[in-house]
């Protein structure tokens, strides 16, 4: 690597073994990650290959690989988008509350409390979703169906048990809140004190100060945090598997009994009893999830890079 041999900005010319070793270790760690990922990708490809080349009738569902996977991809994206739409403003609000609104002494404790949400295993979220959120969602779903039924998302016959895409989206949002909030919180805390004070000194209200100093500073991190959350939402398995009443095919209706399953949940649901080509099919679905994450992250990177002028270390 050319970077490893780059001299520090100091003035010393003597060889610095410490520097070399440290730089080597840092580079090595990066290379290890790439190797692992290559290993995972290779493993996925190797395992998915039989399904890619199999004739359509033999693939699970009997209509070919594409027909099997694309509704799952749709469900994955739909639930994750719902979760992200709910969680992003919430996490920014919570992080702002902790860093700029709550009294300082309470703020630490509050941050801790939100972190606790991350400590809850996903199975528990699944059970909580089924036993608490799902029944509570039924009146909301009925209302949505009555008043907003003209939208494709709200079908005419809402589920009586509440085990719907909407509920999964809400539960996923709560699951990804802690990660997103933690990133936002740390970044908002790092806003240069001087920027904030300058803004306040000019007579800005607290909200104006936040808009002028805190939010621009944290923007790329908010997106970054959202990507972390999205990664978790896309790959979430158990909670979705336990809550969702799934059905084959694409379903825009997010409050009905027929919901598109997600890739990760489908793998968890079908994998244990599968064998032979069915396993290959599921791995191929995993490969697709891999690519979805790839595309989403490319998009996010692109957004961040367009706005990278004013953030963090330059």
């Amino acid at each position: 690597m050319s970077t490893t041999s780059a001299k520090p900005r100091g003035v010393h010319d003597a060889p610095r073994y410490g520097d070399r070793i440290f730089a080597g270790a840092a580079t090595g760690a990066g290379v290890i990650i790439l190797l692992v990922l290559a290993g995972v990708a290779g493993f996925l490809l190797w395992q998915a290959l039989p399904a890619l080349t199999a004739s359509p009738e033999d693939v699970r569902g009997g209509k070919g690989l594409f027909e099997y996977i694309y509704p799952l991809a749709f469900g994955t994206i739909l639930t994750s988008v719902i979760a992200l739409v709910i969680a992003t403003p919430l996490s920014v609000g919570i992080a702002l509350f902790i860093t700029h609104y709550a009294p300082r002494r309470i703020a630490l404790a509050l941050g801790y409390v939100v972190d606790l949400l991350a400590a809850v295993p996903s199975i528990i979220y699944g059970l909580w979703g089924v036993y608490v959120v799902a029944p509570a969602s039924v009146p909301v779903a009925t209302w949505l169906s009555n008043w907003l039924g003209f939208l494709p998302f709200f079908g005419p016959s809402p589920s009586a048990s509440g085990r719907t895409t909407l509920v999964v989206g809400v539960v996923l949002a709560i699951m990804i809140l802690p990660v997103m909030t933690a990133v936002n919180r740390e970044v908002f805390l790092q806003t240069p004190r001087l920027h904030e004070e300058a803004s306040l000194a000019l007579g800005a209200t607290r909200w104006e100060m936040i808009r002028q100093a805190v939010l621009p500073f944290g923007r790329s991190a908010v997106i970054s945090g959202a990507m972390l959350g999205l990664g978790r939402a896309l790959g979430e398995t158990m909670a979705v598997a336990i809550i969702l009443s799934t059905a084959v095919g694409v379903h825009w209706d997010i409050i009905g009994t027929a919901n598109s399953s997600t890739i990760a949940a489908d793998i968890a649901l079908q994998f244990p009893e599968s064998s032979g080509l069915d396993v290959n099919t599921l791995i191929a679905a995993g490969l697709v999830l891999f690519f979805i994450t790839l595309l989403v992250n490319m998009a996010a990177r692109w957004v961040v890079s367009r706005r990278s002028e004013f953030s963090g270390a330059n």
Binding site: V130, Y131, P135, S161, R163, A241, A247, T257, E273
Partner: peptide, 28 residues
Amino acid sequence: SGTWPVSGGESAKGTQGVVQAITAGEGY
């Protein structure tokens, strides 16, 4: 088949999921 072949109705994961769904819904 090990996977449910017809569409319609509700679905749930595992014995526990099915029992929970039936317990929760009148007419299930």
